[in-house]
Design a protein around this nucleic acid. Structure first.
Length: 301
DNA sequence: ACAGTGCCTAGTGT
DNA sequence: AACACTAGGCACT
């Protein structure tokens, strides 16, 4: 076993692992103690979080926790680079804050969740997990991803325990719709299977959207079954480095009508354009993520 | 182009 | 207890 620690205390803008992983951005991590994120926000401060990654095609397990300004990790490999990439440790948070508006709502969100960073999920996992997110609660989306791992993912032994890698396109394409329905994916079952087949067959790949102009990239992703504009925006923002993407879900729509009513244009494309401009363009999705997490926790308590 | 409707299902509220 | 409604939408018409 390799272990190590990354000095995140000295990063520009710092880092907060719990806020980053428990802000509804990624369904590809889970807590080692098995607790649901929702159960207790307080305790997670120094909890271990787990994910899998593929390094040279081989699945590896990575565990990490934050203590005393250090991001400690345990893995079968040197996890420094994977963690830096997956948790966007290179992002310059003060520059991002400077690039977004200076209104009261955003200021409160930035101050409350200092160190929250966007994630950079692997594209296929992001695609499938956000297809699963349609009309679904956070906890259950998480549960579905764990169920998919256990049913179809390659087993990986680490530290005396068996984990499962996230399924590959081939593995999910080979799944039966009935089995996927058994895992309570509901009407999303055929979407997941069809989209996995598209990737497995080489017909399409979420990676191919990378680099296209933003709105073209979003359009490109909607070719997958079960992917509309909202899910496409999630994949762009949380996986493909489109920091300007603002996924318009019901919460954000509510927020827009309350705090930025002039940006509510009645349809997705125009509202998206308006809120993106209002949030400063380039980093609009970063700002959105802070606001979303802030309002969600504030309004729930 | 655009609006209306059906879809799986667990959890919450009445 | 039974029922309606909702949840970070999408495909099809």
């Amino acid at each position: 076993m390799h272990t190590g620690a990354i000095d995140v205390g000295s990063l520009s803008g710092g880092f907060d692992l719990q806020s980053t992983l428990e802000s509804g951005q990624s369904y590809l991590w889970w807590r080692a103690d098995g607790r649901d994120y929702e159960d207790d926000h307080q305790y997670g401060g120094s909890a271990w979080y787990v994910t899998t990654a593929r390094v040279d095609g081989e699945p590896v397990v990575i565990r990490t926790r934050q203590r005393d300004g250090r991001l400690e990790w345990e893995s079968s490999i040197d996890a420094t680079d994977v963690l830096s990439r997956r948790l966007r440790l290179d992002d310059d948070l003060p520059a991002i804050r400077d690039g977004t508006p200076d209104d009261d709502l955003l200021a409160a969100a930035y101050d409350t969740y200092a160190g929250l960073r966007l994630v950079r999920d692997p594209p296929f996992g992001a695609l499938i997990s956000f297809i699963c997110s349609a009309q679904m609660h956070v906890t259950r989306i998480h549960g579905m991803q764990q169920a998919l791992r256990e049913a179809f993912g390659t087993p990986v032994t680490f530290d005396g325990e068996t984990y499962h890698a996230y399924p590959t396109p081939d593995q999910l394409a080979a799944a039966s719709e009935a089995k996927l329905r058994d895992l309570s994916l509901g009407y999303r079952a055929p979407y997941v299977k069809r989209s996995a087949e598209m990737v497995a067959d080489g017909e399409a790949d979420p990676e191919n959207a990378r680099g296209l102009p933003y709105e073209e990239a979003r359009e490109q992703l909607t070719q997958f079954v079960g992917v509309g504009q909202k899910v496409a925006d999630c994949v762009l923002l949380f996986s493909l480095d489109y920091l300007e993407a603002v996924p318009l879900d019901t919460w954000i729509r509510k927020t827009i009508s309350e705090y930025y009513p002039d940006c509510d244009r009645g349809n997705y494309a125009d509202t998206s354009r308006a809120i993106r401009e209002r949030l400063g363009g380039e980093y609009a999705g970063y700002a959105q993520t802070y606001v979303f997490h802030y309002l969600r926790n504030r309004d729930e308590d």
